[in-house]
């Protein structure tokens, strides 16, 4: 078995353990490349059975249009139960990434996720996060326990020995499970290529309308994007390394239109993938802080 086979086998084992031991699991689906791999693994893990759990997409209403199209296409293709949840309260108050920056992430992503998990009483939620993404993530267990407020306590992580996962929780607690913990960004792309996994076209380079703002290239995905004085929309051949809400996701110039070219770029990348996320590098420990607040 090579490196990717081992990562695949580990992830499948984890996904099955959750299904066998947790009463009400759900798989978070963010439409990105990691989610695409995780869905693929879930399909493999139970074949010929369908994954015996629903999927959950937290829709902030600010995702790229192509992401939503892709999500609906994939749900239909595999016949999976895709729950889409939006924080209606936040929507009513018009909480948006342009006017509310960090409050937006909390209300439309973190709070929305907590509301959805509480609403459906999910006891375990798979997430596609990887340890190589960020240094507090590098510390997190595969089975990450959350209290009734969905808060992570990094100083009191439950011991996790071998592949003997202790999935027991008290009432009101829940688990985030990360089957891709040991995958790197390169592994993800190499696996996507090997398994021929479909991903959102935004990962491939194409001429797209972008505006340069605070050092990031932000794509103008709809009419809600208001130009600031001096800004103008330009057509650039760009692609995305990570995907999220379009106003918070930086594109970069690239000519990579095939998986091989993407893999080559990933291998040669000088900056980490987090650099393209506008919200991440506000503070050095902002990820840990958000996890403590209930972010997955």
């Amino acid at each position: 078995m090579d490196h990717l086979d081992r990562l695949e086998a580990e992830a499948i084992y984890i996904i099955r353990e959750v299904v066998e031991e947790c009463s009400n699991p759900v798989m978070l689906y963010s439409v990105g490349k990691d989610s695409s791999v995780m869905l693929h693994l879930a399909l493999k893990a139970f074949y010929p059975e369908k994954p015996p759990f629903p999927f959950l997409h937290i829709d902030t209403t600010w995702k790229f249009k192509e992401m939503i199209e892709f999500r609906d296409k994939i749900s239909a293709k595999y016949g999976i139960n895709m729950i889409v949840y939006t924080n209606e309260e936040g929507l009513k108050n018009n909480i948006n990434p342009f006017d509310h920056s960090s409050a937006y992430t909390d209300i439309m992503k973190t709070q929305a996720l907590k509301q959805a998990l509480d609403k459906y009483k999910f006891t375990a939620a798979f997430g596609g996060a990887r340890r190589d993404e960020e240094k507090s993530r590098a510390k997190e267990r595969i089975f990450s326990f959350r209290d009734k407020n969905h808060s992570w306590n990094p100083k009191k992580q439950r011991c996790e020995f071998w592949n003997l996962y202790n999935t027991r929780i008290n009432d009101n607690e829940s688990i985030r499970v990360f089957p891709l913990s040991n995958w790197t960004e390169k592994d993800i792309w190499q696996y996507i290529k090997r398994e021929n996994i479909e991903v959102v076209p935004l990962y491939y380079a194409k001429k797209r309308p972008v505006v340069k703002r605070n050092g990031n290239l932000i794509m103008v995905d709809d009419e809600r994007f208001k130009l600031l004085p001096g800004e103008k929309i330009v057509q650039e051949t760009v692609r995305f390394r990570t995907l999220g809400c379009y106003p918070l996701t930086g594109a970069f110039k690239s000519n990579a239109t095939t998986l091989d070219e993407i893999i080559k770029e990933t291998l040669e990348a000088k900056y980490s993938e987090r650099i393209s996320r506008v919200i991440d590098h506000e503070k050095n420990t902002s990820m840990e802080q958000r996890k403590r607040e209930g972010y997955f």
């Binding site: 340890r131 190589d132 240094k135 590098a138 990094p154 913990s181 040991n182 050095n284 420990t285």
Partner: peptide
């Protein structure tokens, strides 16, 4: 580069295990 938790950086000690991934021409390492 390794001490990823707030308390670790403040107290200058490692509290929990961190995983790092790298490879050379010969091998992949965790």
């Amino acid at each position: 580069l390794l001490d990823g938790l707030n308390d670790e950086r403040k107290q200058k000690i490692t509290i929990d295990v961190a995983y790092r991934y790298f490879n050379t021409n010969k091998r992949s390492f965790i």
